[in-house]
Design a protein around this nucleic acid. Sequence first.
DNA 1: GAAGTATTTCTGTGAATACTGAAATTGCAG
DNA 2: CTGCAATTTCAGTATTCACAGAAATACTTC
Lengths: 176, 176
Amino acid sequence: MKELSPVQQKFILHWGEMGTRWGINRTVAQIHALLFIAPKPLNAEDIASTLNVARSNVSNSLKELQGWRIVKLVHVLGDKRDHFESMKDPWEMFRIVLDERKRREIDPTLEMLRECIAEAEKDKATDEYTEERLKALRDFFEMTTAWYTQLRKWPTAAVVKFVKLGDKVSKLLGIG
Amino acid sequence: MKELSPVQQKFILHWGEMGTRWGINRTVAQIHALLFIAPKPLNAEDIASTLNVARSNVSNSLKELQGWRIVKLVHVLGDKRDHFESMKDPWEMFRIVLDERKRREIDPTLEMLRECIAEAEKDKATDEYTEERLKALRDFFEMTTAWYTQLRKWPTAAVVKFVKLGDKVSKLLGIG
DNA sequence: GAAGTATTTCTGTGAATACTGAAATTGCAG
DNA sequence: CTGCAATTTCAGTATTCACAGAAATACTTC
């Protein structure tokens, strides 16, 4: 994995670009892409030279990716350097990312909404309409997160089965 | 809506912050938050003075929000200035945003993956493992987007019903 | 515990992004 | 048309973010 093939370059560049669209640092996303298609764990030096970024940048980015829990530090026999590998199963991987985003962003948002609603109730006069809208938002987040929490418990295979049902779900449940 | 109450400020600031986490400009997200809790359509001048940002900044941000199709230009009787209002139903609103993100980001990513896979197949030697991983990603995106496309057709009420079923879904479908 | 290697932290620089205020344009009303 | 108000565009500025390279720290191995 010293030199990237055109295909690999294309994928890594695109993934980096997508990262920025979703609030992920470009280099962080590129490193993730590289590790994702790497057949074996890579060390930081390999990553730095392959992507042409500074060693320190790689170090910080790897920390970030480990924080997202989709990249893990592993050791390779006969090599004392740290190596890193990405999760390989997209289903698992996105599940982890969703968990993490829920924890970091959705949960605090729900918390904020509840606080705002509580405060708005004390001052009905000025915040009546605000309160109504915030309640709608809160209900939305509560319902979707509760649903996700359930979905989260299903094994990957069940999720795949479920998704494969597609349109049939609404008919089977009689809610379409 | 000249002066914001503490509750409104709190909400708007938080929403702006969340925006940045998801790749949305902070001011854009704040304007959206303001419009979301505004009982009536606001004109650009109102928005600028309420949020203390430049008039031109508001103009551009509103364009952006209209691009996301969650803010619409409306006219108020007896006022020739443009006014703007946000979608109010969170379910609708997030559906629109998801549509838009699918169109802008997921669809092009799928396209890229298919191209990469096609190219990788020509050069099995160097890209064998890459090809395998990209296929796994492609399958993931294909399946989830196909599912979303189905879900997309359900009326909001059906989605709410579905989400309310929660854990029962897996039992009813016999896939848990 | 010393030497050498790997890793992280830190600080300054550069690039990208966001923002402002002025200028230009558009759209109406008289 | 003409003049005024609203809106957009543009160019310069500021702020934020990303990054490199040096310095410091932590690990290994002997």
